[in-house]
Amino acid sequence: MDLALQLLFTGIGIGAVYALVALGFVLIFRATNVVNFAQGEFSMVAAYLMVVAIEAGLPYWAAFIVALLGMALLGVIFNLGVYYPLRHRTYLPVIIATIGASILLANSVLAIYGPQPQVLEGWFETPGIQVGPVYLDSQYLLIIGVTICLVIFNFWFFEKTLLGKKLQATSQDKEMASLLGISVSTMIMITFIYSAVLGGLAGILVAPVLFVSIQMGSTIALKAFAATIIGGFGDVAGAIIGGLALGVIETFGAAYVSVPYKDGFAFLVLIAFLIFRPQGIFGERVAEKA
């Protein structure tokens, strides 16, 4: 039982990271109908921005704000440089452009900062607390807390605010939204900014656990992408549930079946969903009439 509790906590912690990145995938997909394969690199860039800001002498909280502002700027640049010029094309060129942007971001950081992995200290001085038989890593606690807050914020933002409803309207039907006087390009810009900040937040939160490295983004993004498919592509709740489920499944699979095949469990679940429920947990079945 003690073992299961410890595994459950760790699984939820790592799953929350997948969920945060998956949320970025979903928001951009809903707004633009394309998958942003650079979402993982957003996490990596933010972690490096944080490291650079701290090295420059800023206190932790100020470095955090600088990193998130930097991500907002990256969201603007990404929208104008990668999505906007291709917005009238089919989804394929845009997806390829996001893959290209992901490679560009990774290599730009490599060229500017070098290949050295970096240590980013966590928010708390205490690494964790022991509650009965379970050790609660303070950084994982923070990640879980932030994920819960973001779920609540997203619900409030998209359901209760005018801006959130405009964003939803844009994601559902761009033409109709435009006819209703909503600036579609502004809404898409806001979505990119929000997704970049979310991805960045995930990167900053997970960096004290996984270290800051060029590869950190791609490693997380692959699992987050699987989480979005499991949860139902395009569904915010699905991204969260998918991420958490994936984290828990792979952690338990590793502990009770096989450690070397840990990643295998995640992708086995993904394949099972693609075969038996391709729309994911929360996705709606889409059919076309002949």
């Binding site: 410890q6 760790t10 790592i14 952690t251 502990a255 450690v259 070397p260 990643d263």
Partner: peptide, 20 residues
């Protein structure tokens, strides 16, 4: 005798196996 895959993000199951 415990193997693990490279680039793992979490070693909790491994540590618990060692402990047990």
């Amino acid at each position: 005798d415990q193997g693990y895959a490279n680039q793992s993000q979490d070693f909790t199951p491994v540590v618990l196996a060692i402990k047990q």
